[in-house]
Simulated scan of single mutants.
Amino acid sequence: MRISCLLLWTCLAALALAACSTEADDMGIVARVNGKPIYLSQLEFQHDLLHMDGTGAFVPTVEVLRGEYGQILGDLIVMEMVSQELDARGLGVTDEEVAEEERKVRADYPDDSFDQVLVEEYIDLASWRERLRYNKALEKFQRLVLRPQIKIDYREAEDYYKQHIKDFRIPETLRILVVRSSDKAPLAEALKVYRDTRDPEAMRADEKVAVHEITVRQGQLSSSWLEALQELPPGESSPIMEEKFGYEALVLLERLPAKQLDPTQAYPLVEQALLEHKMRDAFETWLSNAWNSADVQVSEHLLPRPEGEAAAEAGDPAAQEDQANLESRMGQEDAGKNALQEGMAPLGPDDTPLEQEGDNSENAVPAEGQAQ
């Protein structure tokens, strides 16, 4: 479920009178939610995620950085509120649940390659686990708190179907076997076995060959697959094609013609669509009510500023100095990442550790193990 940006920014704008102090005990803290701190390191972690696929040494302006950090902070505040709501209901995420989620992610990586990815991508495991805990909290909140509140009447489903009937027309689809191997000879032999037996399982007998059955809409086919399947009769295989990973061939199992789903067939899809709408509305209602009773304090440096103030900074020497300091900070972060490889702790501009309050996430570029 995506959180409403408008609602978040409305909430953040209302915090101008509740900004965090700049006392020494707030060093490294960018917000507090009912007394629980959110650290700058958490923002940096999520900000690195945002730019994980970026290239080059682009240095954002102070205004752009403030905007990106503000949006990320809004998400973190709401996720913390969700976690606290679960705790209050006795439904909080346990360490065992986090460990189970981590186990599922690690299962997608052979041997110890997951840990290798962490090292190569400068991913801090503690910060990654913290994000995993937030994700699990949101999933539990949706399933255990919001979902029981929602009911879908059959008349709503009928009306939705009639109003969106075009959405329930299924275009032509194809059932195909994708057969792959790093070597051409085993793949050719597997295709021969299929022609003789018509049994996909028989092809899987050779460990050098991978066989996957998929159903795909014709409009979603790549140009090479579309060409290979264009004139192919059901039950036949395409020529062997060379790819980056090795070789592949396609076996066309069945062409499924386009059809219009009737109301009974479409009901699961209708129910899912209505459920998503109602869950989003229920979440925003809960968030609005929870916000009214929450004690949230945010650093004034991340709050939205009045219109025109950013433009005024363009000729402001102080703003230009902020930009210079930011560029220097970015340089310090790059140096810190290099130092990580040498077992050194990255230092801030005043030669003190960048991270505060015992957080050791550094400025690693994190990932969530593809777990959303």
Results as ranks from 00 to 15, higher is better:
V98L: 02
A314V: 06
R103C: 03
L40S: 11
L144R: 15
W286T: 13
L12S: 04
G90K: 00
A126N: 07
G28H: 04
M279A: 13
L76G: 01
M81V: 05
I150A: 05
E307N: 06
Q218T: 10
V298Y: 04
S328H: 07
V178W: 03
P233K: 11
A157F: 11
D159V: 15
A13T: 14
L229A: 02
L347W: 04
A314T: 07
N34T: 04
G358F: 08
W128G: 04
D108C: 09
K278Y: 05
R129K: 09
M279N: 10
D281V: 06
G35M: 06
A24Y: 01
W225F: 14
Q84F: 03
I240N: 01
D25V: 12
E313Q: 09
K244D: 14
D206A: 07
I176P: 04
V82I: 10
Q260H: 13
N325Y: 04
E342H: 09
E189V: 11
E309A: 09
D359A: 14
L187I: 02
A273Q: 07
A157R: 14
D351P: 02
R195K: 14
D153R: 15
W9A: 07
D111M: 10
R180G: 09
Q332T: 08
Q163S: 15
E213A: 03
G358L: 02
E342Q: 12
Q142Y: 06
R204T: 06
E242H: 03
L146W: 01
R155G: 14
S223C: 08
K166H: 08
L73Q: 03
L303G: 01
V145T: 04
R175C: 05
E156S: 10
R255D: 14
G74E: 02
Y122M: 08
V296D: 01
T215G: 09
L50K: 13
P110Q: 03
R175D: 14
Q370E: 11
T22W: 15
K140E: 05
A228L: 00
A31G: 02
I123A: 12
V78Y: 10
V117P: 03
D25G: 11
H47L: 13
K184Q: 15
K162I: 09
D316Q: 05
